[in-house]
Design a protein around this nucleic acid. Sequence first.
DNA 1: ATGAAAGCGCTAACAA
DNA 2: TTGTTAGCGCTTTCAT
Lengths: 335, 335
Amino acid sequence: MSRAAVSKVIRNAYGVSPQMRERVEAAIAKLGYRPSVAARALRGSSYRLGLEIPHVSARFMGQIVDGAKRALWGTPYQLVLAPADGPEYGTIESLADGLVDGLIAVSPLVDAAWLEDLARRVPVVMLGRHDSPTGYDTVVGDDVAGARAAMQHLLDLGHCRIAHVTEGEAVTAPRSGTPHQIRLDMYRACMVEAGHADFVQVARRGPASDGAGRATADLLRQPNPPTAIFAAHDDIALDVLAAVAESGRRGEVSVVGYDNTDLAAHPLIDLTTVDQEGVEMGAQAATMLIERLQGRTERREYVATTSLRIRSSTTPPRGTGSGPARAGSLKSAER
Amino acid sequence: MSRAAVSKVIRNAYGVSPQMRERVEAAIAKLGYRPSVAARALRGSSYRLGLEIPHVSARFMGQIVDGAKRALWGTPYQLVLAPADGPEYGTIESLADGLVDGLIAVSPLVDAAWLEDLARRVPVVMLGRHDSPTGYDTVVGDDVAGARAAMQHLLDLGHCRIAHVTEGEAVTAPRSGTPHQIRLDMYRACMVEAGHADFVQVARRGPASDGAGRATADLLRQPNPPTAIFAAHDDIALDVLAAVAESGRRGEVSVVGYDNTDLAAHPLIDLTTVDQEGVEMGAQAATMLIERLQGRTERREYVATTSLRIRSSTTPPRGTGSGPARAGSLKSAER
DNA sequence: ATGAAAGCGCTAACAA
DNA sequence: TTGTTAGCGCTTTCAT
């Protein structure tokens, strides 16, 4: 039989008789034949979708991957992950260079123009970008609402001295539009709005090794330390909780995270956090990508809704006498 | 200029003059040219190495990935991850079908003969297999020593009623040689050796959703519940700790995990666990794979050494008076 | 040192 | 319905 016949059988293409199909399938089974992805990709599509996953906030990525897998279930597409931890250009290109039919990336820092170029070569969905591109789709959380909810919660509890612990300067660069920049801005705005502008304190996580532990420890060692900390994401929040525990003040400093990572619900952690539908974000991204592959060209954007999950890591401040703090102490006695 | 020239420049091959190289490089930069991985793979190698990562014990996989990345640093190889959660045959094949030059997989359950076949097509390194293959390399922890160390620690503390919480039956099938089967066997052997054969109790984690929480809760609800639990890996241990905390007996049931996941060191978790050099395992696997690609054909095996990390999740049993429990109490006073 | 050309395994358009 | 054939973009051998 001819290769064309085999090709048609494999692709379920039109124009092949039942008995031919049977013969081909028998041969495939007997020879253990497997089509070469490389050759396929060269001629058409590889049926692989790439997902670039930055090391930062690794736990949140688990949700994204789960969602993408769910969305791809039953489709002919396979998910391929590429871990990145530096500037993501290289990793993204290594995916785009013919390995995959389309890609999802989480790279708030790469240049928008560069992405538009990339998107002309291969369909792209970007996660966590608040820009308004023309050539690619975006899936993003409502960071304004999420950060505001977190801050409002702490303020409602009666906290005044609230610090923010976030990623390095690069990730929050002033007009970059990254989720972390927006969370930081909202933190500042809420503090100002609540009349605590004088206590605005931002700490940043250091080089990967020590995480946000040192930065938090420094915050706590001050004469007038924060009574609450808003962490830019759950992984940082974990470091913050660790630093608080190690400083011997477990339970005395409220901590809010972001992402509602699986660990946040663990009773030994029990972290108040902002849920932004990570799984749904992953699923939407994969779905959008497939739509692009099927021919859609107009831009789409999915904005995930956020909701605050209140757990025991946030309590009213230990009252030292001021109005709201006093109210807080009462509440804390009820626990 | 000819494509041959370009090809040579890209591959740093022999036979190209400096001025030609310069011209080519200028053209590459100007056109933003990127070689197609697919075409390359078709003709020779893709310079991609695949790593199949099962969803189970996800946190341990982080170490493996980190190690593999470290080993690949500075080589021309890129790491590509393929998430799997069911029977891994499909995922492995989807990698092997021309996408990658070689692959690392963590699939204790796939058939050895099938793997030998696979290894004839593409270089393979398997993680966590205690078999003695001819065509592929293995990287494995010393599960006998690791499990024994964990059990010995609990017995030394004075525990008699020790339960084991592990994965589903499939993963511990009697003569399968999986790490979890060996840990289970060692658990049983140590219990018998210590004269506690009558208390051997094995619980298993249910379908992914509830984890090992239910199984643990059932254990604890018994009239004569265990005073210590040996969990087959840290992710299960986390579920166990959660169930213990939720049963209101935080700190009363000792828990040992396995893998020394990053979370085990968190002060709010502080889990005693068996370290098996996960990062080193990943690095060794990647290194072995590269050696294979460079022509090695004889089999290699790397056995990671284990070491017990004692933390506060294990304490002597709350003494109800028996000999060993009393001894344990003394030790605990030293803490 | 350079270029021409064959062919990797597949798909798609066309011929039989 | 089937088989033939022309490339996809690269590497590699062989002439020049």
